[in-house]
């Protein structure tokens, strides 16, 4: 809401397989058609949102990083590019400069600092972005990291900048699991983080990691407990002690497990979830507004 005039909700979890995508897709479907929803699947290593929202892909774009190419005519092999590169993506070997594209972060420092202007930057594809209309008119986009490419964050960054966001629309960003840089990239700029956890020791441990990120990034958040009833009560206790709101509980049931396995959302299991997610959304809106005024 701050700058983009759209409300951006990121869905994260820490631990994998707690139901991020189930929650994110169910939320998106509950909000349409009343809200204009843009769904961004930011789990570019293992994107699954499309399996539930079934977009018809209409637009495609390469996700690239800019890597150096050296004009040997102009290159003085002075070694400046090797000196400035923090990632050792360049090496001075004899009378030439070798480039290691997979280590390059695309920062452009080598090209900028080359005294003889011998470095041109070329596009090195590391994945693709795809977009199209999905179920119930949801605008959908995801990024797909090419197999054997290591860096996910540049794709997430490009995905977030790709689609135009309209005033008053709602952006739902499905984050990757874990708590490293790609989760940070997904959360950056979000107005609210919805954290999906499960009541197990693993769920709690990894939830704490993401809560630390939220604190550092100053993003308000709330928790959904999925598979409520399995495991223990430690997540509940922890959240209570730390005054973190539990915004929804989804019970464990074999019915839900098999529906999700078959590519269905919670709305397919019970229409009650439509209302629950709408209520959740108004709570989120309220929290975001409170956060902005204080």
């Amino acid at each position: 809401m701050k700058n983009s005039k759209a409300l951006c909700i990121a869905v994260a979890s820490g631990k994998g397989g707690t139901g991020k995508t189930t929650v994110a897709t169910s939320l998106a479907l509950s909000l349409t058609p009343q809200e204009n929803v843009l769904f961004l699947d930011c789990d570019v290593e293992a994107p699954n949102g499309h399996l539930f929202l079934r977009p018809r892909i209409e637009a495609e774009k390469k996700a690239v990083i800019l890597i150096p190419r050296i004009d040997v005519e102009k290159c003085l092999t002075c070694g400046k590019c090797v000196e400035v590169c923090q990632f050792h993506a360049l090496a001075e070997i004899g009378k030439s400069i070798m480039i290691f594209p997979q280590l390059c972060h695309g920062c452009g420092s080598c090209a900028w600092h080359c005294p003889s202007k011998a470095i041109k930057e070329i596009k090195n594809p590391i994945g693709v972005l795809e977009a199209g209309l999905a179920l119930k008119g949801i605008r959908f986009a995801h990024g797909i990291l090419t197999i054997s490419e290591p860096m996910a964050t540049p794709i997430i960054r490009q995905l977030k900048k790709w689609q135009k966001t309209e005033t008053g629309s709602v952006i739902i960003q499905d984050a990757p699991p874990g708590a490293s840089c790609s989760v940070v990239e997904t959360l950056r700029g979000a107005d609210f983080a919805l954290l999906v956890s499960e009541p197990t020791p693993f769920g709690l441990h990894d939830l704490k990691q993401v809560l630390d990120i939220l604190k550092e990034m100053n993003i308000p958040g709330g928790v959904i407990i999925n598979r409520d009833g399995i495991g223990d009560f430690q997540v509940d206790q922890f959240l209570k002690q730390n005054h973190i709101p539990i915004m929804m509980r989804i019970p464990y049931s074999t019915e839900i497990a098999s529906a999700v396995a078959a590519g269905k959302t919670l709305l397919d299991v019970s229409s009650n979830y439509g209302l629950e997610f709408k209520t959740l959304f108004s709570q989120i809106k309220k929290r975001v507004m409170e956060n902005e005024t204080c």
Binding site: E45, A46, N48, L51, I147, A262
Partner: peptide, 21 residues
């Protein structure tokens, strides 16, 4: 892996990675 649409989708991706290496 797990027998879900998401599990199978990601199984194919990790398998391609291991085959690549």
């Amino acid at each position: 892996t797990e027998p879900s649409v998401a599990g199978i989708h990601d199984l194919q991706r990790i398998l391609s990675l291991l085959q690549h290496f």
